[in-house]
Amino acid sequence: DVEPGKFYKGVVTRIEKYGASINLNEQVRGLLRPRDMISLRLENLNVGDEIIVQAIDVRPEKREIDFKYIP
């Protein structure tokens, strides 16, 4: 289970102007929005990149997770 405040290694699977889709595994994925990137710009991400993200909002009833990137 993903817990708010914990850090996870994820893989960038899609990049859109509203954010990047991050997969932690086949069943768990979430969104990294541009506003939640401290020192990383969306255009510097590539599909397949592995990054460390922090879960900031977990809504299991909607199967949604928001991530934050902290270098």
Score class of each variant (00 low, 15 high):
V2L: 09
P4S: 10
V2I: 15
A55S: 03
G48T: 01
I65C: 07
E50F: 14
E50N: 09
R35L: 07
R59W: 07
K68D: 03
L40N: 06
V58S: 05
K62L: 14
V2D: 02
K62I: 09
F7M: 06
F67V: 05
E61N: 11
E50T: 14
L45C: 04
Q27W: 15
G19W: 12
R59G: 06
D36T: 02
L40R: 06
M37W: 04
Y8N: 00
N25D: 09
D49Y: 04
I38P: 09
R35E: 14
Y8H: 00
D49E: 06
D66T: 12
R59F: 07
E3T: 13
R59N: 09
V47H: 01
E3A: 10
P71W: 07
G30D: 04
L45R: 00
P71H: 07
G10H: 00
E50K: 11
I65F: 07
K6Y: 07
I70P: 05
L42T: 04
Q27F: 15
D1K: 13
P60R: 09
R63G: 15
V47W: 02
I52N: 03
G5D: 05
V12I: 13
F7E: 03
D49Q: 11
V47I: 13
I15L: 07
I70A: 11
I56F: 09
E3W: 09
E50G: 06
R41E: 11
E64K: 06
R29K: 13
L40A: 09
R35C: 10
G30S: 02
R14S: 13
V53F: 04
N25H: 08
D57F: 12
I51A: 00
G19F: 10
L31N: 08
G19H: 06
I70M: 11
I70N: 09
D36W: 09
K17H: 13
L32W: 02
I15T: 03
V12T: 00
V58A: 05
V11K: 09
T13W: 04
G5N: 07
E64P: 03
R59K: 08
F67K: 02
I22Y: 00
I15S: 01
S21M: 15
L40E: 05
V11Y: 11
I56Q: 06
Q27R: 13
K17G: 10
D57N: 15
F67G: 02
I52E: 05
L45I: 10
G48W: 04
N44V: 08
L32M: 05
E50Q: 12
D57A: 15
P60N: 10
K17M: 11
A20Y: 08
I22Q: 01
V12M: 00
E43V: 07
D1A: 13
E26M: 12
Y69P: 03
T13F: 04
V12Q: 00
R35M: 09
S39T: 09
I22N: 01
R35S: 12
T13E: 07
L31Y: 06
S39F: 13
K62M: 13
P34F: 08
F7C: 14
I38D: 12
K17T: 12
V11D: 01
Y8R: 00
G10Q: 01
I15K: 03
K9Y: 10
N46C: 14
F7Y: 11
E43R: 08
L32C: 09
I15Q: 01
G19E: 04
T13V: 11
I38F: 08
E3C: 11
V53S: 00
L40I: 13
R14T: 08
V58I: 11
L32Q: 02
L24D: 00
V58D: 03
R63H: 13
E26H: 13
I70R: 06
E43N: 08
Y69E: 06
N25Y: 07
E3M: 13
D66M: 12
E16D: 15
Q54T: 06
D57V: 13
D57G: 15
V2K: 02
R35F: 06
G48V: 02
E16L: 12
L31D: 04
D36L: 03
V28F: 09
D57S: 15
E3Y: 12
D66H: 12
V28M: 08
L31R: 06
E3F: 11
R41Y: 10
P71L: 06
I70H: 08
K6E: 07
I51C: 01
I56H: 05
E43L: 06
K62S: 13
I38H: 12
E26V: 10
L32D: 02
P60H: 10
P71D: 08
I56T: 07
R59A: 05
T13H: 04
V28G: 04
P34G: 08
K62Y: 09
L24Q: 01
I70T: 11
L40F: 04
L42R: 02
F67Q: 02
N46R: 15
Q54K: 08
E3N: 07
E43S: 11
K6M: 09
S39Y: 13
I51L: 10
V2M: 06
K62P: 07
L40Q: 05
I22R: 00
R63Y: 12
L32K: 01
M37P: 02
L31C: 14
L31A: 03
N46V: 12
D49P: 00
A55C: 15
E16F: 14
N44C: 15
